[in-house]
Amino acid sequence: MTADMTDPMIDLDAPDLADRLERLSRAELDALPAGVVKIAKTGRVLVFSAKEAELSGFRADRAAGRDWFAEIAPCMDTPAFRGRLEEAAILGRVDIYLEHTGDFRDPDRVLGVRIMESPDRTAYWMVIQRLD
């Protein structure tokens, strides 16, 4: 079942979600109901929220500064995930939602991932929800 993309704290389906995430404090990011990751366009992890650490089982302090696709989520280094992200970047400012199968502790878990370009266009915000 598709997860509800809305929450009283922040509308995870809002068109301006990247702007909103950018304004949140680290504590507020950590308190969101979905995992939040921010990666530089080079792939380096800038933010790995406490909720994402809790849901994924991957320690936040081990994620910071590492390469997302090479070291943390190589299963997303595929045409279906990274390829679509890069094609969306060619179209313009990235704002895509896709469903990806494979979580850190559960390779069969379906993730709903919204990826948005940061307002300064140097990074991507990813909001990760665990679906079925």
């Binding site: 068109p15 279906a80 679509r84 969306a88 179209l91 313009g92 400012r93 704002d95 895509i96 939602y97 896709l98 469903e99």
Partner: peptide, 8 residues
């Protein structure tokens, strides 16, 4: 597969 894209 499901993908939703918001264009510029």
């Amino acid at each position: 597969d499901y993908v939703r894209t918001r264009l510029p």
